[in-house]
């Protein structure tokens, strides 16, 4: 975290993994299967919050959400708000969660994602631009099941990048 040791640390892997998550977010899975696509960006954000707490920060999280609002052609501020709140709570939980085994982390991730989905649903009802299919809850479950995979892959990335 001190500047002279940060030369060997490849912090740029965080934006790169997020960019890959953005691509996965928009991948068409075909017809009605689309609504089961988990929110990869939330998963990657949660991982980095847990792994390097307080490093992402609230403003970058908000900007990432705003970028997603633009990329997804949605109402501006919707994802900005949801990612901001997600990162805020993920950061708060990070130090506790790091001690947990992966499957228990999955449970925490599930709760965080349910929270985010409820928030998005709430915003959608107020703004009136949401088509909330019940499949989203299944997508949240799928995301929680995917957590160990994300965790293992991103831990490799983190070790390779020599992040703490």
């Amino acid at each position: 975290m001190i500047s002279n040791s940060s030369r060997s640390k490849k912090w740029w892997v965080i934006p790169i993994t997020l960019l890959i998550a953005f691509c996965f977010f928009a991948v068409p899975t075909g017809g009605s299967l689309n609504s089961y696509n988990p929110d990869w960006i939330s998963l990657v954000l949660i991982y980095w919050c847990f792994a390097v707490p307080k490093k992402i920060g609230l403003l970058p999280a908000w900007l990432i959400g705003l970028f997603l609002d633009v990329v997804s052609f949605g109402t501006l501020g919707r994802y900005a708000l949801s990612k901001l709140v997600l990162v805020f709570f993920a950061d708060r939980l990070a130090l506790r969660v790091r001690m947990f085994p992966v499957w228990q982390q999955s449970f925490i991730v599930l709760i965080l994602l349910i929270g985010e989905t409820v928030l998005l649903m709430f915003i959608g009802i107020i703004i009136g631009d949401i088509d909330f299919s019940s499949n989203r809850w299944i997508a949240v479950l799928i995301a929680a099941f995917l957590w160990p995979v994300i965790y293992i892959i991103l831990r490799r990335v983190r070790q390779w990048a020599r992040l703490p």
Binding site: G65, G77, A80
Partner: peptide, 21 residues
């Protein structure tokens, strides 16, 4: 400090949401 920033960004998001919709 972070909660002050959080409230600022939350307000900003809500303003954005209302203005854009």
């Amino acid at each position: 400090f972070p909660s002050y920033r959080l409230i600022l960004l939350l307000t900003l998001s809500i303003v954005l949401l209302l203005m854009d919709s």
